[in-house]
C-alpha cells in the first residue's frame, strides 16, 4: 500500500468514527462541524476533477452549491405555500429534490461550460466567476424566494428509510455521498477518459493532434463536476435549512479552490484534508478573535508562496512524491 492510499484510508476512517463518537458523548456541535466539512469536501472533490486533473481553473464552483440548495429550498417552499400542485409530484421528497439539484447543476454547467471552455487562461477564470455571480444576482432579484434575505427551508428532504432531521443520519448520508463522489472521481480519472483530461491539461495541442476533441472531454468533465457539486448543494440546503444568495458569493468559490490547493490537487484525499483543515482552522481562529480573517488571509498567502503540493504532499513526502 502506498503512503497516499494509507493517508486516504486514515482520513476517511477518522472522519467516519470521530463525529459519531463526539455526538454520542454529548458534543453535538462537533457532529455539525463534521457534517458541514463533509458536504464541502464533496464540493471540493468535484472541483478537483476539473481544477486539479483538468487544469481548468473554475472560480465559480459555489454557484453549484447554491443552485443545489435552492433546488431543495424552492420545491420545499412551494410544497408549503402552494404554487406547484399542477406538476403532480411530491415536491418535498428527496427523490424529487436531489435529482432536480443534480439535473439543474448539470444543465447550468453544460450551458455555461460550452461558453467558458471556448476561452483560455485568465479569461476562463474570470468568466466562470462572472457566470456564478450571474446566478447570485438572479436569485437576489427573485423576491418570492426571499431575494437577498434568503429562504428558510421549513422541511428537509423526505427520503425513504432515513430521516434527515436526525443529525446522525444526515451526517451518514453526507459521508456516504463523499465516499461515492471520491470513488466516482477516482474512477473517471483513472479511465481512458481521465487520461485524455489529464493529457489535455499537460499539453492540449498534443492531445488534439492525436485526434481527440479535448473540448468535448473538458465539457463532459465540467458537467460531471457541476452535477456532483449540485448534490453537495442539496445536502447543504438540508444541513443549514436556511439558504441565501450569500452561499454562492465568489468568495465562497475562492474558498473551495483553496480547499483543493491546500489539501493537494490531483490526489484523492487532498480535497477532503483541505476542507477539513480549512473548516477547523476557520473554527479555531474565529473563536479566538473577531479579526481571524487576518491570520487566515496571511496563511493563505503563505501557502501559495511556500507550500507546494498541499497537505498530502507534506504528509506523504518521504515516498518521493509518487
Amino acid at each position: 500500500m502506498t503512503r497516499r492510499t494509507l493517508l486516504t484510508l486514515v482520513t476517511m476512517g477518522l472522519l467516519a468514527v470521530l463525529p459519531p463518537v463526539f455526538y454520542l458523548t454529548g458534543n453535538p456541535f462537533y457532529l455539525d462541524l463534521a457534517t458541514r466539512l463533509t458536504i464541502l469536501a464533496i464540493a471540493a472533490v468535484s472541483l478537483n476533477l476539473i481544477l486539479g486533473y483538468g487544469g481548468l481553473v473554475s472560480f465559480g464552483h459555489a454557484a453549484y452549491l447554491g443552485l443545489g440548495a435552492y433546488a431543495v429550498g424552492i420545491p420545499a417552499h412551494h410544497w408549503l405555500y402552494g404554487g406547484l400542485e399542477g406538476i403532480g409530484l411530491n415536491t418535498t421528497s428527496g427523490l424529487v429534490q436531489i435529482p432536480l439539484a443534480v439535473a439543474v447543476c448539470a444543465l447550468f454547467a453544460l450551458v455555461t461550460g460550452a461558453i467558458c471552455l471556448r476561452t483560455k487562461g485568465v479569461y476562463f477564470i474570470m468568466i466562470t466567476m462572472a457566470f456564478a455571480q450571474m446566478v447570485y444576482y438572479a436569485i437576489v432579484s427573485i423576491e418570492e424566494y426571499g431575494g437577498d434575505d434568503g429562504l428558510v427551508i421549513d422541511s428537509r428532504s423526505e427520503l425513504p428509510g432515513i430521516s434527515l432531521d436526525d443529525p446522525l443520519q444526515l451526517f451518514a448520508l453526507s459521508y456516504v455521498g463523499l465516499v461515492v463522489a471520491m470513488g466516482l472521481v477516482r474512477m473517471i480519472v483513472n479511465s481512458r477518459f481521465g487520461m485524455v483530461l489529464q493529457g489535455a491539461k499537460g499539453n492540449n495541442e498534443r492531445v488534439v493532434m492525436l485526434g481527440l476533441n479535448t473540448y468535448a472531454f473538458r465539457l463532459t468533465a465540467y458537467v460531471v463536476s457541476g452535477a456532483i457539486a449540485g448534490f453537495a448543494g442539496a445536502l447543504l440546503g438540508n444541513f443549514t435549512t436556511f439558504i441565501s444568495p450569500e452561499m454562492m458569493d465568489w468568495t465562497r468559490s475562492g474558498e473551495l479552490m483553496f480547499m483543493v490547493i491546500l489539501g493537494g490537487a490531483t490526489t484523492s484525499a487532498g480535497p477532503v484534508l483541505g476542507a477539513a483543515a480549512f473548516i477547523l482552522l476557520e473554527e479555531a481562529l474565529s473563536s479566538l478573535t473577531v479579526y481571524w480573517h487576518l491570520p487566515f488571509g496571511l496563511l493563505l498567502i503563505a501557502v501559495v508562496l511556500f507550500g507546494k503540493g498541499g497537505l498530502v504532499g507534506l504528509l506523504s513526502r518521504r515516498e518521493g512524491g509518487k
Binding site: I125, M257, F258, I261, Y291, H293, L299, L300, V304
Partner: peptide, 21 residues
C-alpha cells in the same frame, strides 16, 4: 494564474480585516 488568484484572494481577507481594525 491560479496562484495569483489564490494569493490575492488571501490578500483581500487581510486588507478587509485591516480596514475593519
Amino acid at each position: 494564474h491560479l496562484d495569483h488568484v489564490l494569493a490575492t484572494f488571501g490578500l483581500i481577507l487581510v486588507m478587509e480585516t485591516l480596514a475593519h481594525m
